[in-house]
Amino acid sequence: MELEKFILAIVALDAEKVGGCGTPVFFAVNKEEQDKIATYLARITEGVVHDLENGTYIVVKH
């Protein structure tokens, strides 16, 4: 079984919601900055941004 989907990065507003993982985490001060960082990361990694609706975005390679 080959792993086809992979979380490349996490863009979070709240440090409490993430942690204990090997994935790079980027913290943003507000939603505007979060959107910007997430978009940049998605373009660079050719991934897709998904919103977990708790102030955390993940960038996933599909």
Binding site: D35, A38, T39, V48, V49, H50, D51, E53, Y57, I58
Partner: peptide
């Protein structure tokens, strides 16, 4: 919210407003 639907069928979760 961030979830994309077409006539009630769920497609995917999409982040960022843009």
């Amino acid at each position: 919210g961030p979830n994309l639907f077409v006539d009630g069928i769920h497609f995917m979760n999409l982040g960022t407003d843009k």
